[in-house]
Design a protein around this nucleic acid. Structure first.
Length: 479
RNA sequence: CGGGACAUAGCUCAGUUUGGUAGAGUGCUUGGUUUGGGACCAAGAUGCCGCAGGUUCAAGUCCUGUUGUCCCGACCA
């Protein structure tokens, strides 16, 4: 029977309709459920387990760079939010307000935090006096609320889980170094833990965080050629310090303002992993953040010794890997499809024939390559295959980005690329004017994503106005 | 927030045109046979037809409102 039976649970083909494929997969791989609150999701155990692994990996990196975790309140008094003008203007349109406590109307309404800069600032103002109190290197894991107009699972929801780092430093230079250091930490984490290639760069003036002097970001490209911001790191200068009166006395007994940073990543990373690595059979998870790294499927488990052997292999592998054994009475074929949908990196099949030959079958999720592995070498081989798998999915994602990155000198070229090859990153020179950014966005649909660290002069003039241009910019349609 | 589509069993959907006892497939439960790519037989359970009003002898079906989901724009991690 050549034609596989079409099941109702089959996911949409990603080539045909990527958006549909994405919404299918987040439901069918058991990641989320919808709730009656618009744009707020149930993050189911499997997806939450992925998040915990991302969290752990990042948190270790934050600790290694000297940061401490703290927790600030969920509510921000309106007066506090309004202290920094740019900040409040940027966030006001999307904050949720609490107006009542019990039956009583509040004298001052409380904002549900969209981000916690203001609370950290208040705390700094109270707790920083001397240069000996600096730097303050804090991080907080929490959820924030932004009342978005349209929502999409993981990529844009009204409440989302994130991490926000907030630091205060004695000098601008130290703060700038911190901003860049944390951007690097994000990029490393993306590469090493999520096998996700990213472009490091700086946002243009119009795209900066509300209240920031400069905003840095890691941008990446999804399978369908749309760009996604995977993390940001902001340098605030002393703007917030002046608005909140955060001052310290330096070694010369002079009063100085602190220089601040903040940086954040969110559960959007789960969306990025899905859209970057996934395929027509479902999720493909990076080993470091896969809740199950190896799933053991016993074949013909009613036969003598099979279950016992499978359990034995599980206990051997559990020393180094996250392993699940599926002893349910679903058919083997059903299990294969199920764990492929969930993106489990390796499937280990063990049946009577294998036991006879002292071997097992290991199948990789990414390319379905099958390997017969001697049981004596099991732990070593699993480690090797996982390492190779991680590198493969990274390279595959990198190839996709490279293949979808185009150098353009005119807007006509941009439109031609989009028409002929579909969406992707456009590299083009920019004169620095906001007007040109707007025109490019309007005429091509591509917004400025970032001014990359790795600059290259591909032309002398701006892609839009034709005036002299110094900066290379990545442009793209974004999620 | 503007334009469009949709909401019926756990899931995918039919039924709405023309109002008249709530349907199918799949999944689930039980028993048996199976198990190396989504198995088979038999029996069984499962519904505020998104929510609130209205029209009607009678509403899943018609009308109004509302909430949620998806797509396209504007806003955004």
């Amino acid at each position: 029977m050549a034609e596989q039976k079409k099941m109702v649970n089959d996911i949409t083909s990603m080539e045909e309709d990527f958006a549909k494929w994405y919404t299918d997969i987040v439901k069918k791989a058991d990641l989320i459920d919808y709730t009656s609150v618009k744009g707020c999701l149930v993050i189911r155990p499997y997806a939450y387990a992925i998040w915990e692994l991302i969290q752990k990996n990042m948190d270790d990196r934050f600790k290694a760079t000297g940061h401490e975790n703290v927790y600030m309140p969920l509510f921000i008094p309106e007066s506090l939010l309004q202290k920094e003008k740019d900040h409040v203007e940027g966030f006001a349109p999307e904050v949720a307000w609490v107006t009542h406590g019990g039956a009583e109307q509040l004298q001052e309404r409380l904002c549900v935090r969209p981000t916690s800069e203001t609370l950290f600032c208040e705390h700094y103002a109270n707790s920083i006096q001397s240069h000996r109190d600096l730097p303050k290197l804090y991080n907080q894991w929490c959820s924030v609320v932004r009342w978005e107009k349209t929502t999409r699972p993981f990529l844009r929801s009204r409440e989302f889980l994130w991490q926000e780092g907030h630091t205060a430093h004695a000098t601008a230079q130290e703060a700038i170094e911190e901003t860049e250091r944390m951007l690097g930490v994000y990029a490393d984490c993306c590469r090493e833990a999520m096998n996700m290639p990213v472009i490091k760069g700086k946002k243009t003036e119009s795209d900066k965080f509300a209240g920031a002097v400069s905003t840095y970001c890691i941008e990446t490209l999804m399978h369908d050629g749309k760009a996604l911001q995977a993390g940001t790191s902001h340098y605030f200068g002393d703007g917030f310090a002046k608005a909140f009166g955060i001052q310290y006395t330096d070694k010369d007994n002079q009063l100085q303002y602190v220089h601040q940073t903040s940086w954040g990543t969110t559960t959007r990373l789960i969306g990025a992993i899905i859209m970057m690595h996934g395929d027509n059979n479902g999720l493909v998870l990076p080993p470091q953040v896969a809740p199950i790294q190896v799933v053991i499927i016993p074949i013909a488990s009613h036969k003598e010794g099979v279950v016992e052997k499978a359990e034995e292999l599980k206990s051997r592998l559990s020393a180094n890997f996250r392993v699940k054994i599926d002893n349910s009475d679903n058919s083997a074929g059903w299990k294969f499809a199920e764990y492929e949908m969930k993106g489990v990196p390796l499937r280990l099949e063990i049946g009577p024939k294998d036991i006879e030959n002292n071997q097992c079958v290991i199948v990789r999720r990414d390319n379905r390559e099958k390997a017969f592995v001697k049981l004596d070498e099991l732990e070593t081989r699993v480690g090797e295959i996982l390492a190779d798998y991680a590198e493969s999915i990274y390279n595959k994602a990198l190839d996709n980005i490279k293949n979808r990155t185009y150098d353009c000198k005119t807007m006509d070229e941009i439109n031609e690329i989009f028409a002929l090859k579909g969406d992707g990153f456009i590299r083009a020179m920019w004169c620095g004017s906001e007007e040109c950014e707007d025109i490019v966005k309007e005429k091509t649909g591509a917004g400025s994503r970032c001014i990359p660290y790795e600059q290259e002069k591909i032309s002398d003039v701006c892609v839009c106005c034709g005036k002299p241009a110094e900066e290379l910019v990545y442009w793209g349609k974004a999620y």
